[in-house]
Design a protein around this nucleic acid. Sequence first.
DNA 1: CATTTCACCTGGTGGC
DNA 2: TGCCACCAGGTGAAAT
Length: 278
Amino acid sequence: MPELPEVETIARGVDARVRGDQIVEAWFSSHPQPFKTPPDLQAKGLEGRVILNVHRTGKHIVCELGSPSEDKNTDPSAQWIVHLGMTGRLLVTTPAGPVANHTHARLRLASGREIRFVDPRRFGRLELIDLKRTAGFRGAGKEPLTIGADEFAALFRSRKLAIKAALLNQTLLTGVGNIYADESLFRAGIRPRRRAGRLTRAELERLRLALQNVLQRAIRLGGSSVSDYVDADGVRGFFQLEHCVYLRTGEPCRTCMTPICRILLAGRGTHYCPKCQV
DNA sequence: CATTTCACCTGGTGGC
DNA sequence: TGCCACCAGGTGAAAT
């Protein structure tokens, strides 16, 4: 479900509620798909650990975990990595609350709260990284919010694929998904099928600024709730109210009234204004 | 190597 | 009401 703004919103919300808390008990469902690390190893590694902080890298939620036995030591000794896939949710609840269908993980905390991972389509992934054995989590691509003009332009140089497909490639940029690819291309006035390597330097700079503006605005509004996205408290976002093209097929363009087109590109529904985007 | 296609899943919606 | 086709925030493996 979630792209950079939604994941950022969730990570902030979870961090505010569980930072400093201790994991007392971990429970996992019996479906194998969501577990990049086997559930028994995850449970063993999680139980007893202290949550130092929770933050976002690309579309991944990173929980930095410390070992209480080495008290005074605030260096993380493990990371719990949560990827939400298309329909994943990470919620902070009370243990007594009703357990939603498709709940795959429950972490009971010393404070009495509980972290729950719910994911109907099971495209999400949970992973535990032991920092004593392995390096910490790193996204492959660049962070779109902080990338500079030269670095951004270099990503697309001499690439033949469509600019939208390039925006979705997480080894180039990390965190951009279908909504914000379409919305940033609209705001930059660029057609999604244009070959990435053929964009002018000026177009690429318009795209970079449009992407950063859209992502920052969406974070401010708590993300886009298209069908069922909610943050750590179960609250919906509001950026969907400012979508110009995404899921607006046939509706009038907000600037020129031309009906919005939908095509298939890189296997994804792709929305654009045939008049505003060249 | 770069690029494209497809499988992986459940659930909601709209047509008939 | 039921049945069916189609669509949905992602990604990694296989094919081209």
